[in-house]
C-alpha cells in the first residue's frame, strides 16, 4: 500500500504529517510505502530517516486545483498512490473539492465534506454549538473597522480577537481590540472574531469519526507545556468521561468523517467545558494516541480502504508526550535534488 501524506513541516509550528506517518508505520499490520508531499524543500520531514520513502514537491492549493491535480497525477504514475492523507488546514478545502477526481484516478481519501468544513469554520461554529446545546464562548464577527464600535457592552475585558484562519490576541481594552483588529485584518482578511474570554484550563481531544456519526476513537489530553506560539510542547492523556461524551456528541451531530482535534476550555467559574475550535485534521500531537492504545491514523487508513473496524473503547491514562528540537544533518546533494528535481 502506498500512502501519500502532506504536512512534513515539523517546525516550531509543526504540521501533523510526521506524527501521522510515525503512527501508521508503528502499526504491526502496515506494509507499504510512505510518499511525502511537500510544499518547501526545507520541510524537516524530508530529511528524517525512516519516515517518507520518497518525497515530492507539490504546488500550493492557492496556485489552482488543476495544477495540484496534474502534479498528483504525475506522482501517481510513478508511485501508484492508494491513499492521500492531507494534514494541513489550508489544503483541506482544495482536497475535498478534488476528491472525486482523485477517486477516478484510483486514489482514495478519507476527508470531511465541504459542509462539515463549513460547520467548523470560526464564523459558523457559534451557531452550530448553540443549536446543539454545546457551550461555546460568546462571539461577534467584525467585517469592517466600523464594526469595532458595535461590540456589545456585555463583552467584559479581556476579550480574544481571532483571525478567520489563524492567530489570536487577548485584548484588555478597546484600544487593544483596534490594534489587534488592524493587524489581523491586514494579514488574514475578514471577518475578525471577537470572543468572550473564558478563564480556565485548556484541554484537547484527538478523535476519528467514521462519517456516520460514530466515534471510532478519542483521546483527551491536557497540555503540560505551551510555547509562546500557543503550541503544546508536552501533554498527558487524561480521564474525563464528560469531555469524551461531549466530543462524541460533536462527532455525532456533525457526522464527522476524518481525523480531528477538538479544543476546549474548562471554565474555572462553572467547571463546564466550552468548545473553542474544531480542527478538521489530526493534530501534531496525534502520535500520543497510538502510544496510549488508539492508533487513530492507522484506523483512518483502514476506513479509507473500506475496512470495517470496531471503535476503540479505552486508552492508557497518564501517557505523556514531550516534543524535542533535534538538528538533522543533510548534504547539498540532497537539498539540490529536492530543490531542482522536485523529488527525493
Amino acid at each position: 500500500m502506498n500512502i501519500a501524506v502532506t504536512g512534513l513541516n515539523a517546525t516550531d509550528n509543526p504540521g501533523p504529517g510526521i506524527p501521522v506517518i510515525r503512527s501508521i508505520k508503528a502499526h504491526p499490520d502496515f506494509n507499504g510505502n510512505i510518499i511525502g508531499l511537500i510544499y518547501d524543500s526545507l520541510e524537516p520531514g524530508i530529511y528524517m530517516e525512516e519516515m517518507a520513502n520518497k518525497c515530492y514537491l507539490i504546488p500550493y492549493p492557492s496556485s489552482g486545483l488543476d495544477m495540484l491535480l496534474e502534479r498528483i497525477s504525475a506522482i501517481h504514475e510513478k508511485e501508484k498512490i492508494d491513499l492521500i492523507i492531507p494534514t494541513l488546514d489550508s489544503e483541506l478545502y482544495g482536497f475535498a473539492k478534488i476528491k472525486d477526481r482523485l477517486s477516478e484516478l484510483g486514489i482514495k481519501t478519507f476527508l470531511p465534506t465541504i459542509q462539515q468544513l463549513n460547520i467548523r469554520a470560526k464564523d459558523n461554529l457559534f451557531d452550530f454549538c448553540t443549536s446543539h446545546e454545546i457551550k461555546v464562548p460568546k462571539n461577534i464577527l467584525l467585517t469592517s473597522s466600523n464594526d469595532i464600535y458595535k461590540i456589545p457592552k456585555d463583552f467584559k475585558y479581556p476579550v480574544v480577537v481571532k483571525g478567520i484562519f489563524y492567530d489570536a490576541y487577548i485584548a484588555n481594552n478597546f484600544d487593544e481590540i483596534k490594534t489587534a483588529f488592524h493587524k489581523m485584518s491586514a494579514k488574514w482578511g475578514y471577518p475578525i472574531i471577537v470572543q468572550e474570554f473564558i478563564k480556565g484550563n485548556e484541554f484537547n481531544v484527538v478523535a476519528l469519526g467514521d462519517g456516520t456519526g460514530e466515534t471510532i476513537g478519542a483521546v483527551p489530553m491536557k497540555k503540560l507545556y505551551i510555547t509562546d506560539k500557543g503550541k503544546g510542547w508536552a501533554g498527558i492523556t487524561i480521564d474525563d468521561p464528560n469531555l469524551l461524551n461531549l466530543s462524541k456528541k460533536i462527532i455525532s451531530k456533525t457526522k464527522w468523517k476524518s481525523g480531528m482535534e477538538l479544543e476546549y476550555i474548562k471554565s474555572e467559574e462553572t467547571n463546564e467545558y466550552y468548545l473553542l475550535e474544531i480542527n478538521p485534521r489530526f493534530p501534531a500531537w496525534v502520535y500520543l494516541a497510538p502510544n496510549a492504545g488508539q492508533n487513530l491514523p492507522y484506523a483512518l487508513v483502514q476506513l479509507a480502504m473500506g475496512e470495517t473496524i470496531k471503535p476503540f473503547e479505552q486508552y492508557d491514562v497518564g501517557t505523556i508526550f514531550v516534543r524535542a528540537a533535534w538538528d538533522l544533518i543533510t548534504n547539498l546533494k540532497a537539498f539540490e535534488k529536492i530543490a531542482i528535481q522536485g523529488e527525493i
Partner: peptide, 17 residues
C-alpha cells in the same frame, strides 16, 4: 481515580495535574 505513589507523587487523571 486519584493515584498516589510510594514517593508521594499524586496524579489527578481528570485534569492531568
Amino acid at each position: 481515580n486519584v493515584a498516589v505513589s510510594d514517593t508521594g507523587f499524586v496524579f489527578l487523571p481528570t485534569t492531568g495535574e
